[in-house]
Computed example of a mutant assay.
Amino acid sequence: MSTIINKTGSEEIKLHVVDYGTGQPIILIHGWPLSHKSWERQIPALVKAGYRVIAYDRRGFGASCKPWDGYDYDSLASDLHSIIEELKLSQVILAGFSMGGGEVVRYLTNYGDAKIAKAVLISSIIPVVKQHADNPDGVPAEKLEEIAQALQEDRVGFLQDFHKQFYGADKDATAVSQGQLDYDFSIASHAAPQATIKAADAWANTDFRAECANVRIPTLIIHGKKDATVPFETAGQQAHKLIANSIFINYDDAAHGLNITHADRLNEDLIAFLRA
């Protein structure tokens, strides 16, 4: 474990980073509102497969520092860039889960792919979450506003129930254990309130459709058809159409948190893509 500092002007953002194994580096970028600990089922499998696995806590979450501002995707991509530069990485694989897909695409937009070999988007918000006239399958604006209001008025109460839908446990109580739900709630509730609110605004309101043209490297997209958090049609399916050099795998029976509910299958698909 280490701390990497991203110096942006007079501000220093301290990022909590874990770094395991040797070989080609893969950086795991977690979703909202969790931390790098959400990759618990993937890290051992990737290390065993011969990869150097790097995961970090997004600013405001986990053990990283918690500034008041800087939760837009330019700032978040800058944090990712600082990790790549500080560790002197090349031939990197970027893997983003849910909100983390935004850092992948914005990094490629702002910094290019000279140091990046492949990308992976898992249950990702790419290319757009919100419903628009030209994106009818997106999440309605009023639903996103309800989430924003709930976070303002009763953040902890909202987070206590959030992961039931995340894993599909609202429809199938056996999808994950109560322990997993409690664990996620503990992680999410200890994130900075301002980070939770402002990061949600970023993933809900950033439109990456035009930026998908900047993803020119081989890309694996995995999304669950039963994802009620980031709908399959507006995200994975549409991302595949917009990212030219992409492979798309859909999990018919998976909700959003397939990194836990379908961990073994995800690990197999992920490692097969990395080795291809």
Rank of each mutant, 00 (worst) to 15 (best):
N6Y: 10
N6A: 15
E11H: 11
E12Q: 11
L15E: 09
L15D: 05
H16W: 07
V17Y: 09
V18M: 12
Y20W: 05
G21N: 03
G21T: 05
G23L: 01
L28Q: 06
W32Q: 00
W32T: 04
W39L: 06
W39H: 08
E40G: 08
E40K: 07
Q42W: 01
P44S: 03
G50H: 00
I54R: 04
I54A: 03
Y56A: 00
D57E: 06
R58G: 09
F61K: 01
F61V: 00
G62W: 15
G62K: 15
G62D: 14
A63Y: 10
K66I: 09
P67N: 14
W68A: 10
W68V: 07
W68H: 11
D69F: 12
Y73F: 15
S75L: 04
S75Q: 12
L76W: 08
D79A: 08
L80N: 00
L80K: 00
I83C: 00
I83S: 03
E85M: 03
L89V: 08
V92Q: 02
I93L: 06
G96K: 07
F97R: 00
V105I: 15
T109V: 11
N110A: 10
N110W: 10
G112M: 09
D113I: 04
A119L: 05
S123W: 04
S124I: 01
I125W: 14
I126V: 15
I126Y: 02
I126N: 05
V129T: 07
V129K: 04
K130W: 08
H132I: 13
N135E: 06
N135W: 13
N135M: 11
P136Y: 09
G138M: 09
G138D: 12
P140D: 14
I147H: 09
L151S: 10
E153I: 07
E153R: 06
V156T: 01
D161F: 04
F162N: 07
H163D: 12
H163G: 02
K164Q: 08
A175K: 13
F185K: 00
S186K: 10
S186A: 09
I187V: 14
A188I: 05
A191T: 04
P193H: 01
Q194H: 02
A195N: 00
I197D: 01
K198R: 06
A199T: 12
A199D: 03
A200V: 00
D201I: 04
A204F: 11
N205Q: 14
N205S: 15
R209S: 12
E211M: 11
E211W: 10
A213V: 13
A213F: 02
N214Y: 04
T219E: 08
I221R: 12
I222A: 06
I222G: 00
H223V: 14
K225H: 11
K225Q: 15
K226L: 15
T229H: 06
T229W: 05
V230I: 07
P231S: 13
P231G: 09
F232G: 06
F232S: 04
G236I: 11
L242A: 14
I243T: 10
I243R: 13
S246V: 03
I247Q: 13
N250M: 10
Y251R: 13
D252Y: 07
D252T: 08
D253I: 12
D253T: 14
D253C: 07
H256M: 09
I260T: 11
A263G: 01
D264C: 02
R265V: 02
N267H: 04
D269N: 13
I271Q: 01
A272M: 09
L274T: 04
